[in-house]
């Protein structure tokens, strides 16, 4: 699956949770990824992260590390 699309989707999710109150935004992004992304998508995101995670914003990156 195209890393560009996964990065874009992960960043969209992070953008939403960044606006939410609290200090656990990364956990909530990670939970969303676990709840709604098929394991192959999460694996592809992890692989992209392992290669540097180009394009991932900070919160998405932090969340991807927690998935």
């Amino acid at each position: 699956m195209s890393p560009d699309k996964l990065v874009r989707m992960a960043n969209q999710i992070a953008t939403f949770f960044r606006s939410q109150p609290g200090t656990d935004q990364a956990d909530r992004v990670a939970a969303h990824l676990r709840d709604f992304w098929d394991p192959s998508m999460r694996a592809a995101l992890a692989a992209h992260l392992a290669k540097g995670g180009e394009g991932l914003d900070d919160l998405a990156r932090e969340a991807a590390q927690k998935v």
Partner: peptide, 16 residues
């Protein structure tokens, strides 16, 4: 116990 693919994900995975 894991979620599956959604329609757009299925199509992306098919192209891949």
């Amino acid at each position: 116990p894991e979620p599956g693919l959604r329609i757009p994900n299925m199509l992306d995975a098919a192209v891949s």
